[in-house]
Nucleic acid binder design. Sequence first.
DNA 1: ACGCGTCTTGACCATTTGATCAAGAATGAA
DNA 2: TTCATTCTTGATCAAATGGTCAAGACGCGT
Lengths: 207, 207
Amino acid sequence: MIKDKAQPAAKTRIQSENRDLILKAALDVFSSHGFRGTTVDQIAEKCQLSKPNLLYYFRRKEDIYAAVLEHTLTEWLIPLRKLDINADPISELTRYIEAKLDMSFSNPAASRLFANEILHGAPHVGKFLKGPLRDLVEAKAHVINAWIKAGKIRTVEPYHFIFAMWSVTQHYADFSVQVESLINGQPNLDTTKSAVVEILLRGLVLK
Amino acid sequence: MIKDKAQPAAKTRIQSENRDLILKAALDVFSSHGFRGTTVDQIAEKCQLSKPNLLYYFRRKEDIYAAVLEHTLTEWLIPLRKLDINADPISELTRYIEAKLDMSFSNPAASRLFANEILHGAPHVGKFLKGPLRDLVEAKAHVINAWIKAGKIRTVEPYHFIFAMWSVTQHYADFSVQVESLINGQPNLDTTKSAVVEILLRGLVLK
DNA sequence: ACGCGTCTTGACCATTTGATCAAGAATGAA
DNA sequence: TTCATTCTTGATCAAATGGTCAAGACGCGT
């Protein structure tokens, strides 16, 4: 579980600078190698600080991980929060899918960090999943159901549809090595956006 | 990369029995904790063999991992290979999606093992991705394109569609902790099948 | 320039862990 | 039964790694 305020707020210039350095490097390394596969030395080298210095800012390796994860999670949900029941469903969902793809393409490390955490049983974010995230998803499932009842889109199971949007969009970050191997190069963002939007939303448009 | 025949074929009864024991236990542990997160001791304890005994059958930890991965990959592609250009597209794709969901539900550890491998850069299966898998996917993309040209389904970008089928179906294994947290329990296989099939295929049916 | 609190690090420690090896136990073909 | 081959393991090693600590360097308000 994420410790609440595991680290006190930065007090000095050097503190906030170095915390940022560390978190940035840690995101890179943790997302590449996982928690156990990452050594404090690797992070230290990446941000050009000594190992004891890292452990001056974060007492334990796990504290670094928790900080990076927490920092990542907060912005992860912003697009979902914005789903507006009063707007046009197709354009709202299009916006959401495109926002998620933007995130997958621009910050794949964050996606991979989260994927790895879930893949291994969510040891640090279990409470987050069953708490805040669950409430948010439930609310958005209601939004989708409202759209269906209002006759604005075709019937779809809201939870499975949300899972589908998540998995497809994050696939381009989490499985980028596979994607790039199969299409022989990096996918184009705009092409991907239109393809994914068509695949996921065309079945929702009223006949 | 996967070593070709890293282990000679089993010669004795005891060999094949213990190899199986080890691989079974190793799949469990590796899929739960990743390569670095797994210790040989954990595998040894799970299959009730001593650590030196494990290393008698597989010289290095990495050889165990490679063997499990190879064993998993071969059956992973069977459903995709079966996609038949001459059959009805919707029923073929339905069959494929349901087969993938069956696999995700019945053997989530295999899916997670593969996901973890890709997530961390596919250090052991890079050649497989760019070789056999790429050829197979290219062939199946042609099948989908043929269906489109024959006017049997609506237009869709074949690669992205294949990625979508993969990501959505494997999501129920790889992210099962999240899924189960959000819907408060295990998803029902049949319900999931019909929901996923609708989400992915309804947009392909001709108007 | 002073002095206090912040920051930095070389040296070090304890534990974990992949791997080795020699010696003994079990297996099974003759 | 014989005995060569296969199998098993306790003891042990070296390397990697998370974490500590004391001593010194530095930053900065006065």
